[in-house]
Design a binder for these strands. Sequence first.
RNA 1: GAGCCAGUGAUCUAGUGGCUAUGAUGUCUCCUUUACACGGAGAAUGUCGAAGGUUCGAGUCCUUCCUGGCUCACCA
Length: 794
Amino acid sequence: MAENYNYKESELKWRKFWETEGIFKFSLKNKAKVYSIDTPPPTVSGKMHIGHAFSYSQQDFIARYKRMAGFNVFYPFGTDNNGLPTEKLVEKLKNVKSTRMPRNEFVELCDNTVKEILPNFIEDWKIIGMSCDFSNSYSTIDKHCIKTSQKSFLDLFKKNLVYQQTAPTMWCVHCQTAIAQAELEDKELDSTFNDVQFSLEKGDKITIATTRPELLGACVCIYVHPTDKRYKNLIGKNAIIPLFGYKVPIFADESADPEKGSGIMMVCSWGDKYDAEAIAKRKLTPRIIITPDGKMNSFAKQYEGLTIKDARKQILSDLEKEGLLIAKKPIKHVVNVHERCGTEIEFLSTKQWFIKILDNRNKFIEAGKTIKWYPEYMFTRYKHWIENLGWDWCISRQRHFGVPFPIWICKKCSEVLVAEESELPIDPLEKKPSKKCKCGSSEFTADNDVMDTWATSSVSPQIILNWAKDKGFDASMELYPCSLRPQAHDIIRTWAFYTIVKGVYHENKAPWKDITISGHVLDPKGEAMHKSKGNAVEPSVVLDKYPADALRFWAAGSKLGDDLRYLEKDLVTGQKTVTKLWNASKFTLLQLQDFKSKPKKLEAFDIWILTKLNKLISNSTKNFDNYDYYKVKADVELFFWRDLCDYYLEISKDRLYNPDKRGVQERVSAQYTLYSSLLNTLKLFAPIMPFITEEIYHMHFSEKEKIKSIHLCSWPIPDQSLIDEKNEEIGDKLIEIISEVRKEKSQKSVSLKESVKEIVLPFKESEVKDFIEDLKSVTKAEKVSFGKKLEIKL
RNA sequence: GAGCCAGUGAUCUAGUGGCUAUGAUGUCUCCUUUACACGGAGAAUGUCGAAGGUUCGAGUCCUUCCUGGCUCACCA
């Protein structure tokens, strides 16, 4: 055995071994119960980030445990590479603008770029030791996924759960597409709260406070609260819009808050959701003033063509010139921005596809209740999100690289014709429908729109299910619901929620039995990591310096749902544990070279450590079953470091080194104990540190156990016959004595090797006699006697 | 504004009613000991956020408050 462990060499070696030997390949022949994991397909970006390394490690602990625990683990790997995030990446990598090139060229460029970067991207997941079946990887833009996604749409269409509507929807003027509520983010911006003077027909003046003066030309009516005494006389009158000069009616409406601003509110098309509701309620004709690319249109008169920002500036300055700007207070306010680009969202009236979700909120909450959430409180977050939903799910995007809607629109009667399931996957821009429209016409147009990326990733359970079926999956293997959905908490409102929606609509039940939610990685100060903040840590940099096992060991240090700070010292601790395993194994395996048969009888201290080991196995099993990998990590670490290395290895040395003095059977007993303790420690650590455990396993145990990978070994079962509480209690007391002797030597600045003349033990001889020889050797005591009080005579 | 989570030695952390509160990192002292100095032995450091309450007994349960983080909402 080499002096030092070369993790770089070793990790690469085992990664290749697992792949060429197909260790994690899903087996159709395996008749064991299936444990299926609805793995998150990471969005293809340049590189894996540390948050990925963290949460994917956590799910891999579970996958590896379940595999050892005897399940036939179905653990496919996928990547999410369609839709806006992929387009953004391609635009950045290739320095292009999708709006400035032909659509098909851009789509092709996306396709090629994804193919180009995918292998390297996936490699990062292999490096951290993910035990997915990489021979079966899906991509959300591949034919199979497009088919599954389009099939989902057809099913919703048939069930009347999807509809197309022209209405004000949230719009990103930068990405030039509609977006969904879940894609909003808060951003605090500097702005001004402006008191603007409006005139009434008879020359009276009123003041309205607004943060959005550029929408003056979009104002269609004015609200005051019905009980607001100040403004009772305004109701029913008209107001004249400053700078624009047209008249709008003044209504009484509950939605005007007398406390806010001047208590008078202008309704514009559209400042927010409530404006849209107000205009619909009053049946007013909207004055839509913003173009899809964020400029002012002809309603803005002299401001036409300006950007929103410029129009705001110009209008404010003109108001000021006219003496109509009564006050301008600087404020900080929080606005909704598009999460992908940070642009403030607008409301535009466009034709979009929506999946009905508002009507069935209760169903989604009920379905959520049938899933076991780890940690439990994450369900509350899910529930609150649903309770606060304000919109149906807008799934159409005015983009290019994504799943096309499997529909055509009749040129003559505008009827929607949907594709047949057998035609899928289909691009209606390239293929004509196989039948005529109801009206007899065969002239159709197809939509340029594509689906929201979540519309596809939300069918990930169906993607892997259909895929398994295609591969000849035995129908008796229950795949839906999946056993587990692992993901991070930032996408509860998107991925988890949308997948449950689709599950309820397509299969009438929740998509998984369990869901585990990982936290985020924070910087050393406990703040969120952002590339722009410069505090992000790259896994490749970490892995250049530390073993992947150390990274995983660190990731095992926090419980599900908890955020974890990235502190380099924790990686050092992980690395030390790897080294310690190597060194302890070096010693142990050397002692095991001639170990063949079981001992006739176990020595007292051997029973002591085996008792602790079997209790540890029992607890670790329980903890892993509850997804409490952090407890397993902490318990095994403590057992290994303290009980096994600090105490037992030292205790066993005399018997191992001096069989002529201590007896051959006594040595065999120690060998047996070491074999069992080390092998089981390795197994317990294997899900967390797969590389070092595999390395050590292959140095000795694979030959004896006849299983080609530690990750295919069965999870240890506690041997109740080896648990001896009485023995453990006495052993613990003697461990304390050993500790006292060490303390005494340490305080006297004497080496631990130094012999002790006599130890007087505060026990009855009969009670501890089986331990005495080992106690004498480990403490280097020349003589042991028994008395009332502990005495250590150096 | 609402909800959720958390507040334990210098730092991070375990601990869901019961002996002198766990472990790690850091600090200090000692030990080159035949697995390991990426080690070992030991020491010091805690009014368990605050105040009340329940209980024979509370870090652990309840109430209120304070602080931090997250999520959602408001954002004329």
